[in-house]
Computed example of a mutant assay.
Amino acid sequence: MRAVVQRVCRAEVRAGGKTVAAIDRGLLVLLGVTHGDTAESARAFAQRVAGLRVFDDSDGRMNLDLAAVGGAILCVSQFTLYGDVRRGRRPSFEAAAPGPAALPVYRAFVEAVRGLGIPCEEGVFGAEMEVELVNDGPVTLILDTNDLARPRRA
Rank of each mutant, 00 (worst) to 15 (best):
Y106P: 08
V131P: 12
N63V: 13
G26K: 09
E111A: 09
V113A: 02
G117S: 05
S92C: 15
T38I: 02
A102H: 06
P98V: 14
A108F: 04
R86K: 14
F55S: 14
M129W: 04
F79C: 08
I118N: 10
Y106V: 03
D84T: 09
T34F: 03
E122D: 04
V105I: 00
A44G: 07
V113L: 02
R61D: 12
L30I: 02
F125G: 12
G32R: 10
G71L: 10
A68E: 15
G126D: 06
N63Q: 11
F109S: 00
P100E: 01
L103M: 12
F109N: 03
T80K: 13
T80P: 10
V85H: 14
G32N: 10
F109T: 05
L30M: 13
P91H: 14
P104T: 07
Y106G: 01
H35A: 03
G115P: 06
T34P: 04
V131N: 12
D56S: 15
P98R: 14
E122I: 03
R86F: 01
C75H: 11
M129P: 08
E121H: 11
E130V: 15
V29E: 02
P104M: 03
R53S: 10
R43E: 14
G36D: 02
D84M: 06
P119D: 04
A67W: 01
L81G: 11
A96R: 08
V29D: 01
V29P: 05
A95K: 14
A72I: 05
T34V: 11
G99D: 13
L103C: 04
A39Y: 01
D59L: 12
G36E: 05
D65M: 12
G60R: 12
A102N: 05
T80L: 14
F45C: 10
V49S: 07
G26N: 04
R48F: 12
L103V: 11
A127L: 03
A96S: 10
V49D: 02
A96C: 03
A42M: 02
V49G: 03
R114A: 10
G70E: 08
Q78C: 09
R86N: 07
V33W: 00
D57V: 14
F45T: 08
A112G: 01
V54P: 09
S58R: 15
L66N: 08
G126F: 00
V124D: 04
G36A: 00
P119Q: 07
D84F: 01
E128T: 12
A102I: 06
E132Q: 12
A50R: 14
V76H: 03
G70D: 11
A102D: 03
R89A: 14
G123I: 09
I73F: 00
R114L: 09
G70H: 11
F93H: 05
F79A: 12
L28S: 03
M129A: 08
S58I: 13
L74V: 01
L64I: 06
E111G: 07
S41P: 02
V33D: 00
E130W: 00
V33H: 04
A68S: 15
L64A: 10
E130N: 01
F109Q: 00
F79L: 08
D59C: 11
V33L: 04
V49H: 00
G36Y: 00
D56Y: 13
D57L: 11
A127E: 09
E122Y: 06
V131L: 12
